Simulated assay, not measured.
Amino acid sequence: MAEKKDINPFLKQVLELGPPLAFFFIYLRLRDDNFVIGGTEYSGFIVATILFVPLMLAAMGILWYLTGKLSRMQIFTAFMVIFFGGLTAWFNDERFFKMKTTLVYGFFSAILGIGLLQGKSYLAYVLDEMLPMRDEGWMILTRRLCACFAVLAVANELVWRTMSTDLWVKIETFGFPIALMAFLMMQFSMLQRYMDDPDQ
C-alpha cells in the first residue's frame, strides 16, 4: 500500500480544479472553430473534450505521485471522463460528454441510496476518519446528500437538453460545483451537534 504523503493544500486545489477550468477556457477559445482530424470534422467542443482527458489524467498522476493516494471518487470520476470522452470523440457526438455528469451524480446518489436501504451510511465509510460524527448525523447527511446528487443529476439533464452548450459548460464548470459545496457547508453547519468531540 502506498504511503500517504502531505501536500500543500493550494497545490492540491490547483491539481483538482485546474483541469475543469482548463477545459472551460479551451472551450471558450475553440467553441467557434471546426477542426478536420483524419478526414473527420470536429467541433471546438469535441476538441476541448479530447484535450481535457489527458490534462485531467496528468493532474491526477501528479496528485497520486505527490500524495501516494487517490480517492475512490477521483478514480471513478476519471474512469467516467475517459469513457465518455472517448465515446464523444469516437462518435463525434457531444451528447456523450454532457450525459457523463448526469451519470456521475446519479451513480453517487444510487450508491448512497443502496446503503440507506441497508441501514448504512457509505458516506461515513469514506469520510469517517476526516470528519468524526455520530452515526445519527451520518445517516442524516447521507440522506440529504443522496437527494442532492439526484437533484443535480436531473438538473444536468434539463440543462444540456434544453439550453445552449455555452450555458451548459458554464453551469458544469461553476454552477454545479458551487451548488454542491454550498450545500455541504450548510449541512456541516446544521449537523454540528452530531460531531464527536475528540477531547472527550
Rank of each mutant, 00 (worst) to 15 (best):
I171P: 01
V53M: 09
A147R: 09
V14R: 11
P198F: 01
F183R: 09
L117F: 12
T173K: 13
T101H: 02
G137L: 01
Q74F: 00
A155V: 02
I140Y: 08
I171V: 14
R144W: 05
E16N: 15
D32G: 13
R95H: 13
M130I: 03
L116Q: 08
G115P: 03
E157Y: 10
L103I: 09
I75S: 15
W64P: 00
I114S: 13
W138H: 02
E136K: 13
Q13F: 11
V36Q: 15
Y105L: 03
L167M: 11
N92V: 00
K12C: 01
F97L: 10
V159K: 06
L184H: 05
K5V: 01
L131H: 10
W90I: 05
M60F: 02
I26C: 12
M163D: 13
M163A: 10
F174R: 10
A155Q: 07
D197K: 14
G137Q: 05
I140E: 12
A89D: 06
R143Y: 01
S121W: 00
R29W: 12
M60P: 01
G39Q: 11
E172C: 08
G39M: 07
L131T: 09
D196M: 12
F96N: 09
V36P: 08
D135L: 07
T165K: 12
F97C: 01
R72N: 14
D199M: 12
T162V: 08
S43E: 09
D6G: 15
I50M: 14
F79Y: 04
F45R: 03
A153S: 12
L15W: 00
I171M: 15
D196H: 14
K69N: 08
L117N: 13
F45N: 00
L116W: 05
K69M: 01
F108W: 00
L131G: 09
I50A: 15
L55G: 09
F35R: 14
V169K: 07
G86L: 06
K12L: 11
A124P: 01
E16A: 15
V36S: 14
D196Q: 15
F79P: 00
E172H: 15
M139F: 06
S43M: 03
L51Y: 07
A179G: 07
T67F: 02
T40S: 13
A78F: 00
D166E: 14
A150L: 05
L11R: 15
F149M: 02
L180C: 04
I114W: 10
Q118F: 11
L112D: 00
M163Q: 14
E136Y: 06
A89W: 07
M190K: 12
M99E: 12
S121R: 02
L184C: 09
S189T: 03
Y105M: 08
I178W: 09
D93Q: 09
P132E: 11
R29N: 15
F76M: 12
D128V: 03
L66Y: 04
G38S: 05
Q187N: 07
K4S: 13
F188K: 13
A182K: 10
M186Y: 14
T88H: 06
G44T: 02
L17S: 11
F25K: 15
N92R: 05
R72K: 13
T165W: 03
L51V: 06
T40L: 06
F84A: 02
E129G: 12
V14L: 08
M133E: 03
Q74W: 00
G85S: 05
T49R: 03
A147N: 05
L116A: 08
C146D: 01
K98S: 04
S164D: 10
I82V: 14
C146G: 01
N92Y: 06
L141A: 03
L131M: 15
I50H: 09
